[in-house]
Amino acid sequence: MTLPDSKPDAEPTGAQAHFRALESLYAAAPINRLFDSVLEIPEGGIARIRFTIDERHFHAGGAAHGTSYFKMLDDAAFYAANSLVTDRFLLTTAFNLLFTKPLGPGPVIAEGRWVSGQRRVFVAEARLIDASGEEAARGTGTFMRSRIPLASLPGYRAG
């Protein structure tokens, strides 16, 4: 029996290339050396960050410090919004955060979703889901187009 030759996967194009380039940009950001995390953008307006909380992220009370909550919520909302913008880097202009449960050590998912805006200002929300499937925090951010071309940023590699 002869198997068909397998061809290498084609390079992503269009929106998929933009999503992969944003994932590369996230991975290249120096701040992400401090967090064991991976961004995935499955479709426009949606972003997920899988990360792990450990004792390095704890405050004196033995749970994750708010900086971890903010960073992951902001990033998930940001990338959900920037997935809809192919030419410019967005900037966070405001972010509101609601803590609902302390995070201990373990895996967490930050889920971001675009809510509104398509020109200059975008609104996106995010939530943190712990390993038991419970929401630990949620946030809403506003983001605006900057003058920074995405293509000029180290790490942004569009196909």
Rank of each mutant, 00 (worst) to 15 (best):
T2E: 10
P4L: 03
P4C: 03
S6N: 11
S6M: 13
K7L: 15
A10R: 14
E11H: 11
G14S: 10
A15Y: 08
A17L: 06
A17V: 08
F19A: 07
L22H: 02
S24E: 14
S24M: 13
L25F: 09
A27T: 12
A27D: 12
A28Y: 04
A29Y: 02
P30S: 10
I31C: 08
N32D: 08
R33A: 14
D36E: 15
V38R: 15
V38K: 15
L39R: 01
E40A: 13
E40Y: 07
E43A: 13
E43T: 10
I46R: 15
R48N: 13
R48I: 03
I49P: 01
R50F: 11
F51E: 00
I53H: 02
I53C: 10
D54S: 11
E55C: 01
R56S: 09
H57N: 08
H59G: 14
A64P: 01
A64N: 01
S68W: 01
S68G: 13
Y69T: 00
K71E: 14
K71C: 13
M72T: 04
M72I: 03
D74S: 07
D75A: 14
D75E: 14
F78P: 00
A80E: 02
A81Y: 03
S83I: 02
L84A: 04
L84E: 07
V85S: 05
D87M: 05
R88C: 07
L90K: 02
L90N: 01
L90W: 01
A94W: 04
F95Q: 02
F95S: 04
N96H: 14
F99Y: 15
T100E: 14
T100C: 07
K101W: 06
K101S: 12
P102M: 06
G104T: 08
G104Y: 04
G104E: 09
G104R: 09
G106S: 06
P107L: 12
I109S: 05
A110C: 05
A110Q: 01
R113A: 08
V115T: 05
V115E: 10
S116G: 05
S116C: 07
G117Y: 00
Q118H: 11
R119F: 10
R119W: 04
V121D: 06
F122C: 02
A124Y: 00
A124C: 01
I129T: 12
S132L: 11
E134R: 15
G139F: 00
T142F: 09
F143G: 01
M144F: 11
M144Y: 09
S146I: 07
R147A: 14
R147L: 11
R147H: 14
P149L: 13
S152W: 03
L153G: 06
P154A: 06
R157T: 12
R157Y: 05
